[in-house]
């Protein structure tokens, strides 16, 4: 028994190292001076210089790209949630012909690659005059996030006991009133997590955003386009900017992660 436990802890530590050590490297890279980044061998401890970060943030194009990314991500989160909440509620609370077909259709969107989707959309957006705008990218990201968020939201609503809603109705609420007073307060954390998922998916997405933008790139697109010519401090500081929201996200929703059951596919 004890030998197996030692083995278990040893394996766990190794696996944790595999995940954590690279993250440490990027932190060191982002918080080192240019001199330190270009020296070899590298120092395992950063000199906690903000030089690289300052260089990245003040580089031409970065502030605008960052702003675009944030706007696109927030738009995606809001629009996705507004579309997904009613659908998720319907799936969680009603039994009706077509519910399974809807679920299956939503699930099967997983089989269709973003690559196929973004090119015709670029053509559409050119015609509609929203090519190279934050709205164009946000609409695309919403299409990507929506299927997952519908299923997540449906699980969230299913987790709110129907008794609560019925009790609210018995004690004088309308159907919508019961939803607002009994369901929403209990579902709020789950809904927030689902919206956060959409926000992060949008913040991370690079393929579609690179197809759909030209002068208004999002941050990942901006970093990607200049990547091969960019100096190392720029790359490493950029990497930290791209990674930090992801770690924050996991920290915020770690309790709910397991309920999702294969939902999240973050890019």
């Amino acid at each position: 028994m004890t030998a197996r436990r030692v083995l278990g802890y040893g394996g766990a530590v190794l696996l944790a190292g595999w995940v954590l050590v690279p993250i440490w490297f990027v932190v060191v890279g982002a918080f080192s001076t240019a001199d330190a980044v270009y020296s070899y061998p590298l120092a395992a401890w950063p000199d906690w210089s903000l030089e690289s970060m300052r260089f990245f943030v003040t580089s031409a194009g970065v502030p605008q790209a960052l702003l675009s990314s944030v706007i696109v991500a927030v738009l995606t989160g809001v629009v996705t949630l507004l579309l997904a909440a009613p659908a998720g509620y319907a799936l969680a609370r009603f039994v009706f012909p077509g519910a399974d077909a809807y679920r299956l259709a939503v699930l099967s969107t997983r089989a269709f690659p973003v690559v196929v989707l973004s090119i015709p959309l670029a053509v559409f957006f050119l015609q509609w005059g929203i090519y190279d705008t934050v709205w164009g990218v946000a609409l695309m990201h919403t299409a990507l996030a929506l299927p997952f968020v519908v299923l997540m939201v449906s699980a969230v609503f299913a987790g709110v006991p129907v008794d609560l809603e019925e009790a609210a109705q018995v004690f004088g609420c309308s159907r919508f009133g019961a939803f607002r007073r009994a369901v929403v307060p209990n579902a709020a954390p789950g809904l927030a997590a689902a919206a956060t998922f959409a926000v992060l998916l949008s913040y991370n997405e690079v393929f579609a955003a690179s197809i759909l933008t030209l002068q208004q790139p999002t941050l990942p697109v901006f970093v990607l386009t200049g990547l091969t010519q960019a100096p190392l401090p720029f790359r490493y500081a950029g990497a930290l900017f791209l990674l930090a929201p992801a770690f924050l996200f996991i920290l915020l929703i770690r309790r709910r992660l397991l309920g999702v059951g294969g939902g999240p596919t973050l890019r």
Binding site: A16, V19, L200, N204, V206, P220, A246, R267
Partner: peptide
């Protein structure tokens, strides 16, 4: 769990 899931939200580019 938290440690192993850290890369979950990491972008390809990052």
């Amino acid at each position: 769990l938290y440690v192993f899931l850290l890369p979950l939200g990491v972008s390809e580019l990052g």
